[in-house]
Design a protein around this nucleic acid. Structure first.
Lengths: 244, 244
DNA sequence: CGCCAGGTTGAAGTTCCTCAAAATTTGTGG
DNA sequence: CCACAAATTTTGAGGAACTTCAACCTGGCG
């Protein structure tokens, strides 16, 4: 059970923020059964083609969805932060069309599909909130398409950092410097090589737009970075009432 | 009303194929009100930031979702073919986070959100079928991320052509040569310039993998083209029971 | 028949990749 | 807490893939 457990509270806080539903309406989430799992770095949770029976709620760490190419190159499709449920789509499409794994030591709660489906049937508001989360995930993926298709390395990296900051900030994790994933992971996400990521980060640092100390990122000039990246957080739909 | 109209039948056939629901279960779709609209080439239906109140069902033609960059570059996020509802997400996220427009003369049916929402409430099977469509759309977008991030021009174009073929085939429109969008549109979709698209298509033609006559595409060697593109149609989730 | 969107080609330039090596950081066991 | 191995970051040099610019075709349509 998630009763008063950290996972339940994370999810409630998250859905409260994204949908505006109050705690009473979301209290049902505490009835969800869940198995906690601790993961090291680079552990795969599910693979393309797998049939899965649980959804994953991130309690701590970073996960990523990814696809591989024949020559062993990896493309990360999306990063996920605490409070995210990266494989919510598996509730309706249980055969994975991509893989899911950790890119940092992480803690996850595995929630059986059946429990989530039953809860959704009982509680249409929660069903709707989960719907919404999945659609926002789609919006993020579409931004990445634009990012990969039309921005250069500098803009892509800047965009990724802006998005990461805003998403972490939304769950209260951007107060201190942000622990970054490896440059290889950033490259796999932005469709670039590690070398290029390294040079781009060096340039952003030398312009004093960001600092990185012991792998921890601080954004020094958020406005300038956002301008470089053409970043507008609207696509994250963080404010349920926002009208652009 | 969509009663026995072409739009209703297109949607019923489409959802029948993708979900396995039979005609009786989907008959309710005929009660949906709809306004038919004819579009020329390159007409915008809705823009990033717009608040919309209808979903669009494609009856004939091609639509595309897209995002622009500051310098006026356009990134197409996805192509849509007859039977698709490209903006189903607007039912839950009514403020557009991207734009939608035609890339060929097209015929669309505009269905009011309210009617679709009411029908979904009344008929959970249809609700679920629509859910599924949206999730498949997400799967397609994720493939495009991999395509843009990790494939070269040749592979990207091959992938796009394979996907277009299979999606059109699924609605019975791939028997004759396929009327292509402009090379500019293909470039905007694959994150490449027109020039590069032109050269890539020329190469694919000279290898006799495809032929293009009067802008109509025929895939001569589908297997070889799929191999080049690393194309596996599973991600389209066309067969509701497929397990990879 | 002539206009114009769209297709085609060449040449030069840029961005990013590849390969390779070295420096630094992180993690682990003693 | 140190020493060592492994992982990650950093830098350089050369090359490939794609872009940019600019011109010239082509075919469908009024």
């Amino acid at each position: 059970m998630l009763t008063r457990s950290a996972p339940a509270e994370i999810l409630i806080r998250r859905l409260h923020r994204s949908t505006g539903l109050d705690e009473t309406e979301l209290a049902d989430l505490r009835t969800l059964p869940a198995t906690i799992r601790e993961l090291g770095k680079n552990e795969t949770i599910s693979r393309e083609g797998d049939r899965v029976h649980h959804c994953v709620l991130i309690v701590d760490g970073f996960l990523a969805r990814f696809l591989d190419t024949r020559e062993g190159k990896r493309q990360i499709l999306s990063f996920y932060v605490p409070g995210d449920i990266p494989d919510l789509q598996s509730l309706h499409l249980p055969t994975m069309d991509h893989s899911l794994g950790s890119i940092a030591p992480s803690k996850i709660a595995m929630i059986p599909h059946k429990a989530l489906a039953d809860l959704s049937d009982r509680n249409p508001r929660i069903a709707s909130a989960l719907w919404r989360e999945t659609l926002i995930d789609g919006s993020i993926t579409r931004r990445w398409v634009r990012c990969l298709g039309r921005l250069n390395a500098r803009q892509r990296v800047a965009h990724m950092l802006c998005e990461l900051y805003v998403r972490l900030d939304a769950v209260g994790l951007a107060d201190q410097p942000i622990r970054l994933m490896t440059q290889q992971d950033i490259g796999d996400a932005m469709g670039l090589t590690v070398v290029q990521i390294n040079r781009t980060l060096r340039d952003l640092r030398s312009e004093e737009l960001i600092t990185i100390e012991k792998r921890h990122l601080t954004i020094v000039h958020r406005e300038r970075l956002q301008k470089i990246a053409e970043f507008d957080p609207f696509y994250l739909h963080l404010d349920p009432e926002a009208r652009h």
